[in-house]
């Protein structure tokens, strides 16, 4: 679906390139995550894929055509939600969606349907200027879905959302994938990426450091240890770590298991964030 080879890009007037060689393929029906700190080149890469930046070097093929050559009909088939949800403040949510909907010639979805799904149906007739950040974020997703796009580009889709609404958005994204849509998510929120992405790419300094599934990454980077917290009479909370290897015959562990003092037991799974820091030597923020 999306095929990128040897992508380089430098903003006009700047010496340092922002993208310094990227290669990746995104398959149909896949949720692909661009992860990395801000300024790493995620958004620039996304803008190139969207066709907003055309003077790049390398090959970027989407729907079997070079993105720098695409006609405006390309936009009939993609949906984009930028990081900052911008709308006509003086128009209502419904009016905004109707306006954007009218710009497409192909088949579109009724705005009411999308607003309903995102829990905005009650505020459809409110001016966007009265919307909260979280409401605008959801409206932003609605706008990206108006034209039933085959490929979706979502920039930080869960930022500024409370957990309940973040869940709503994540479920919607997964449902879209099940309908066969290809979805590229740009984020520095590792939890979101972990929960919904099929594969993730770690991006640092304009390069892709690694591409893999979140599960593979975690399995490979797990420390394979169990951490046990137990309540001791005089010492308060005590933490013990045991190797997973041969844990069934580890006498200390078995004693502890029988002691009835255990409060929690966890395997020490590395989070995506730990792995990112491990692999790239960088933090995310």
């Amino acid at each position: 679906m999306i095929d990128v080879e040897k992508l380089h890009f430098t903003y006009p007037g700047r010496k340092e390139p922002t993208i310094k060689g990227m290669d990746f393929t995104i398959n149909e029906g896949e949720i692909f995550g661009f992860l990395g700190p801000s300024g790493a080149g995620k958004s620039t890469a996304q803008k190139i894929l969207i066709g907003m930046l055309k003077n790049y070097q390398g090959r970027v093929r989407i729907f079997d055509q070079e993105v720098s050559q695409v006609k405006r009909s390309y936009y009939e088939r993609i949906g984009v939600a930028f990081e900052f949800p911008n709308f006509y403040q003086r128009l209502t949510a419904m009016e905004n969606l109707s306006l954007f909907r009218s710009l497409y010639t192909g088949e579109t979805v009724a705005p009411e349907e999308l607003l309903m799904e995102m829990g905005l149906n009650e505020s459809a007739r409110m001016k966007v200027s009265a919307y909260s950040k979280g409401m605008k974020m959801r409206l932003n997703l609605c706008r990206a879905l108006l034209n039933k796009p085959d490929i979706l580009f979502l920039d930080e889709p869960t930022s500024g959302l409370d957990p309940l609404n973040a869940k709503k958005v994540k479920n919607k994204i997964v449902r879209l994938k099940e309908e066969g849509k290809t979805i590229l998510i740009t984020t520095h929120n590792m939890n979101t990426a972990d929960e919904i992405c099929d594969r993730v790419a770690f991006i640092v300094d304009g390069r892709i450091q690694l591409i893999d599934t979140p599960r593979n990454l975690k399995v490979r980077h797990n420390e394979k240890k169990v951490q046990v917290e137990s309540r001791e009479k005089d010492h308060g909370l005590k933490i013990n770590e045991f190797d997973l290897q041969g844990i069934g015959t580890n006498p200390d562990f078995l004693t502890l298991l029988r002691s009835n003092k255990i409060e929690t037991i966890h395997t020490q799974e590395a989070t995506l964030e730990d792995i990112f820091i491990n692999v790239t030597g960088r933090g995310l923020n």
Binding site: M52, F82, L103
Partner: peptide
């Protein structure tokens, strides 16, 4: 400045 132009020109609008 409110980036509405970016949103307009990722549609088929010419």
């Amino acid at each position: 400045n409110q980036n509405i132009l970016d949103n307009l020109f990722i549609t088929p609008y010419k």
